[in-house]
Amino acid sequence: MTSTPVIDVDGLNVRYGDFHAVKNLSFQVERGELYALLGTNGAGKTSTLETVEGHRAATSGTVRVFGHSPRDRRAVRPRMGVMLQESGFSPDLTVRESVGLIGALSGRADQVGRVLGLVGLSDRAGTEVSQLSGGEKRRLDFATAVYGTPELIFLDEPTTGLDVQSRHALWEAVDRLREDGSTIVLTTHYLEEAQQRADRIGLMHKGVFHREGTVAELTRTLPAEIRFSLAGPAPALPLHAVRGSDGGFLIETFALQKDLHTLLRWAQDGAVELRELQAGPTRLDDVLRSIGGD
């Protein structure tokens, strides 16, 4: 299928005076994708996101959303919902009034009651925003973003401050939106969320992509990890392992299945107990920590 991408960024540069926040960045987001923009603090992801949302002008380069400039609000905004990183609601308006106002301005049709039900705020409809908890404000923000089920939804740190239950409910709502064909652009500090849910990830560092691709592509280039600790004295390990400061062992391998088998057989044969055994692909946290260190 050849369709124009929902988001098309080509050679984007964003500068603030002498500071070059985004350097020659290019990427595309296809219809129906969940694209996660990740990075260290100050990597340029907020600048990139704000430019794509239309809140900020590009210093140079082109950004197209649905084939239009994102600054063309009348053309673009009715088709996209934005969940901002910081709330920006009037404390004196109620939850119902806030969703009603932003919904009316979105250019989409929906019912406030339906949207509040979706995010579990129905019983808070008459409460003024100033009385809401941090997590409830995030859910209110999500409600305004998904009002009218837009084709494109920006989620900027959507689960920060949410308890486990609300986080689960939010991701369920996102899954339903994706079933309806919505495209999602996500930033998050919870990297496991991105690793579990994103189709593709752009990993930013110092204004450029350190890596970009599917989760599998990203982790394939890095060794998988086996972690464990030992209860007591044991025969010599069958594989090269690094001992961490907590006394645990770490084996890095590009042959996870084979090396894990070797380790398990060694443990079985020597009746060694492997405590806190974990094996799996490198976590994005580690990738991010490694690029943040240089």
């Binding site: 949302e53 809140h55 920006g88 979105s106």
Partner: peptide, 12 residues
């Protein structure tokens, strides 16, 4: 309180 930014994230 970022209400202006919020309004500017709509079609208005």
């Amino acid at each position: 309180n970022l209400f202006l930014k919020r309004l500017r994230s709509t079609a208005a």
